[in-house]
Design a protein around this nucleic acid. Structure first.
Length: 425
RNA sequence: GUGGCCAUAGCUCAAUGGUAGAGCUCCAGAUUGUGGUUCUGGCUGUUGCGGGUUCGAGUCCCGUUGGCCACCCCA
């Protein structure tokens, strides 16, 4: 058994993971994002610097053999900010970068949450415009849509920390208490009203008033308007209850939820204009925003949704299938068979043949199990080869030198259909 | 860190305190050259681990480890 909260990826699970990753990469690239990566292990201080005690408690940290205090990355943003602070001069602004890191946290595993998971991180660095906020939200919507979900399945709840900080300013709340107030608002959805009232004190009534009305602002409205122009209005709504726990957010924040409310948040993000400056001790100042979406909750949602599940299963079935299985009907033909198998592979076909002596029914059974489209038989007919279409059952005899052309005719059409299906997703 | 539920074959699960089983998977066959169906046979267990009660414990009790779920927190 793997360690608590960690997963083995057997072929089926690994295929699902790769499927999700490929969708992530495809959509991020559609928006012009480029992929980067960083180290799994960072200095503990990178995370201690700008995070709350709670996050430090859940860090997967230890002292290495060089007596450095290190931690497995709990999120990608500090690494990104560190890299950007050093290398941003090498790139035109804005940077549009994505990464698929495995991240870690030391806590008790539960549904939808382990001690490790993979997440897609997409960030825009060096762009302060509202268009960038809308673009990032459009991207997260398209990432979830590409998996096979519709506006009936999920929604992006969009909020703005500035909306609340302006409010706190107008209520003359001292700035050092803002974070505490924001956390109380963030939690108001998940705990009894009395607890929130107690935490907010005199602000309780006005805050509950705003929450009841829904709250709105010119900034949030313009972002919604932008999404409407893209035809994405059905996927988003303004909801000022969203604040997000991380202290570094400074502007727009958003979270993605399933409409049925069965799962925890599947993605979240926002603007963090000060983080690069803070992590570089003021040396570099760049506005930034980004989001992360994890593979665990997304995978649970896919399995629970018939459409998304069917889409994934058909993609996985065609992905693992071989094109051709070579049946060795006469053991004497093994050398001829492997020569031709190799030739077919050189032409890009996926080809398998039995590695040990096997009776013929069993070879066909194996061909079927491997999802082969064609079986080619090596036996008494040599140098002719019997080619059997395993879907229709039709079998024809083909001369050795005609084989490649024949297979191209039979397989290319189905392969073209397959890639057509993949493109349409 | 706190609490609840659970732990039997690779998987899903049976077994009144009385000889540990079934289905699926896997492997091998069904007269030596044609798959999906079917049939036959075969493999796999210190019943998570350690104590206790009892003539006898998979079953009851205590401890322990692990898993799931919820809380906390949320990257």
């Amino acid at each position: 058994m793997p360690l608590t909260g960690f997963r083995d990826f057997l072929p089926a699970a690994c295929a699902e993971r790769n499927y999700i990753f490929s969708k992530w990469r495809e959509v991020a690239r559609r928006y012009g994002f480029v992929e980067f990566d960083g180290p799994l292990l960072e200095e503990l201080d990178l995370y201690k610097k700008k995070s709350g005690d709670e996050i430090v408690r859940q860090l997967y940290d230890f002292v290495d053999k060089g007596e450095r205090a290190v931690a497995l990355r709990p999120e990608m943003t500090p690494t990104l900010a560190r890299i950007v602070a050093t290398h941003h001069r090498d790139f035109r602004k804005p940077l549009k970068w994505f990464s698929i890191p495995q991240v870690f946290r030391y806590e008790r595993p539960q549904r939808g949450r382990l001690r490790e998971h993979f997440q897609l991180n997409c960030d825009i660095i060096g762009e302060a415009s509202r268009e960038a906020d809308a673009e990032l939200i459009a991207l997260v919507i398209d990432v979830v849509r590409a998996i096979g979900f519709s506006a009936k399945d999920f929604v992006v709840r969009i909020s703005d920390r500035e909306f609340w900080t302006e409010f706190l300013k107008s209520e003359r709340v001292p700035e050092e208490r803002w974070e505490e107030m924001l956390q109380a608002i963030d939690k108001s959805e998940r705990e009894p009203r009395e607890n929130t009232t107690e935490k907010l004190g005199a602000l309780a009534d006005p805050v509950f008033g705003i929450l009841a009305k829904g709250g709105e602002s010119a900034k949030l409205n313009s972002i919604l308007e932008n999404l409407r122009a893209r035809g994405l209005a059905d996927f988003a709504k303004v909801d000022v209850r969203i604040v997000r726990g991380l202290a570094y957010y400074t502007g727009i924040v958003f979270e993605v939820f399933d409409r049925a409310g069965k799962f925890r948040a599947i993605a979240g993000g926002g603007r963090y204009d000060q983080l690069v400056s803070q992590l570089s001790d003021g040396a570099v100042s760049l506005p930034a925003l980004g989001f992360a979406i994890g593979d665990v909750v997304l995978g649970e949602m896919i399995r629970a949704n018939p459409t998304a599940r069917a889409q994934m299963e058909s993609a996985l079935a065609s992905d693992r299938a071989v094109d051709i299985f070579a049946v060795i009907a006469k053991p004497d033909r093994r050398a001829d068979a492997s020569a031709i198998v190799q030739e077919l592979r050189d032409h890009g076909w996926r080809v398998e043949y039995p590695l040990n002596a096997m009776n013929i029914p069993k070879q066909f059974h194996t061909a079927e199990a491997r999802g082969a489209r064609l079986a080619i038989l090596f036996g008494d007919e040599w140098p002719a080869i019997a080619v059997k279409d395993l879907t229709s059952g039709e079998q024809v005899l083909v001369a050795r030198e005609q084989l490649l052309a024949h297979i191209a005719r039979q397989c290319l059409s189905s392969r073209a259909e397959r890639s057509e299906v993949e493109r349409s997703r």
